[in-house]
Write a protein that binds this DNA or RNA. Sequence first.
DNA 1: TATTGTTATACTCTATAACTATA
DNA 2: TATAGTTATAGAGTATAACAATA
Lengths: 177, 177
Amino acid sequence: MKTDSLDAPPPEGLMLPVPGVDYGALEGLLGYALRRAQNALYLDFYRATAAWDMSPQRFAALVLIARNPGMRQGLLGQAMGLHRSGALRLTDWLTAQGWAERRDAPGDARTWGLHLTSAGKRRLVKLEAAVAAHDRALLAALGEQGPALKAGLERLAWAATAQSTAPDNKPRRRQPP
Amino acid sequence: MKTDSLDAPPPEGLMLPVPGVDYGALEGLLGYALRRAQNALYLDFYRATAAWDMSPQRFAALVLIARNPGMRQGLLGQAMGLHRSGALRLTDWLTAQGWAERRDAPGDARTWGLHLTSAGKRRLVKLEAAVAAHDRALLAALGEQGPALKAGLERLAWAATAQSTAPDNKPRRRQPP
DNA sequence: TATTGTTATACTCTATAACTATA
DNA sequence: TATAGTTATAGAGTATAACAATA
């Protein structure tokens, strides 16, 4: 199951409109506008977190573990839309870098409880501040329409979910060649 | 240069809020809302284009080539934020699948002119209709705030670009280990 | 000397499938 | 029998670097 993805390397460059190129139907698409915005946001995220070896996904995992100490690896994957194996690799990286650690979970010997290390908690404070500043600057640039945009994105996520999970719209994965 | 990316496989699952999980600072971030929306939109794009072996990126390339017949491979990459080698692979796939073809470009013997094949043009009509329907349904679900959302996304892309390319904010790529 | 496209290679992210241990 | 996590493997997408041909 492969294709065009959500979590990939930071883009080589910006998807800025190139003068002289006709974008045709793309200009009118909400999906394309979303893609362009995310492309730009990703690049700015990497810039804002240059002092850490961070990615939007890793950052989200750190926040989730911080706020839900002892959470299972599988639950982390579920919250992030990842397969179990993806959650494993992500957790491996976080532990290897000293951000988090696996501890025995009470009750079920099959599972780990994920926790931030002391160093991880300490480092996360500054990292969260950097991400918050990056996000705040964007929101500020949008002026009074910022909050409406965020609300709109949340509605959009909901609408797309409803549409792709509707009973007569069978979900689909990419076909093998 | 690797990490978390824009074009990767369709996500395993939706990034829906999981009951009982505390999302902490993520809930307030514009960037996280954007990510969630794109996750859902990607999944719905794949559903809507199930009759083709399509991805948002491939679709964008097809539209660009259709509207700019004879465009160079490098220009395609530039418009899509891709490295030359990425544009090459993308073009290889489009030609292998019979969507497009490389023709000699007049004037410069180093470059190709990219064109849709006749079959590609024919197939693109239905594909564009399917994508447009998918996008229109989302826009409809947003009601009268749809156009504002699209405009907001365009402003957001602009703001993030301005922020990451500001003179005192040096752009950055992920560091090697 | 710079640019276009190519080749070869490597890395990251993701998924699938089979396996182990536990429930 | 089902679930959590693991291991091993494969595939897609992207990038880097060196190269040839052309400008």
